[in-house]
Amino acid sequence: MRPEDALPPILDLDRLVHEPARLTILTVLAAAEEVEFLYLQRVTGLNKGNLSSHAQKLEAGGYLETVKAFRGRIPATSFRITAAGRSALQAYRERMRAFFGA
């Protein structure tokens, strides 16, 4: 594949998913029904502020939903991937596989 032929598929990538932290978040969420904030924080290595910011962007894009609950007396936030988020992630993976021949 010539580099100029590869450009259109790359430029078409969903930027909301392509960012590494958001990609990791969606990848984790796609493997479970519900994931707590702390788990995502430990896996991504992001601080609370950055993780919240990325989650808000994904939520605004309709890719995840937030679930508020309590762990004892401590508020615990969890996330769920939406159907739109799942198909966006799937489309992104297929495009990456096609591009890199993975």
């Binding site: 990609l23 990791t24 990848t27 493997a31 479970a32 896996v43 993976r93 596989r97 890199f100 993975a102």
Partner: peptide
């Protein structure tokens, strides 16, 4: 291409770890 396909393999690995953790 071996190194470029690593992110996709990492995603699979992370999903596998998450499923095992949930269990």
């Amino acid at each position: 291409m071996e190194t470029l396909s690593k992110p996709v393999r990492d995603m699979d690995h992370l999903q596998d770890l998450t499923r095992r953790y949930a269990e």
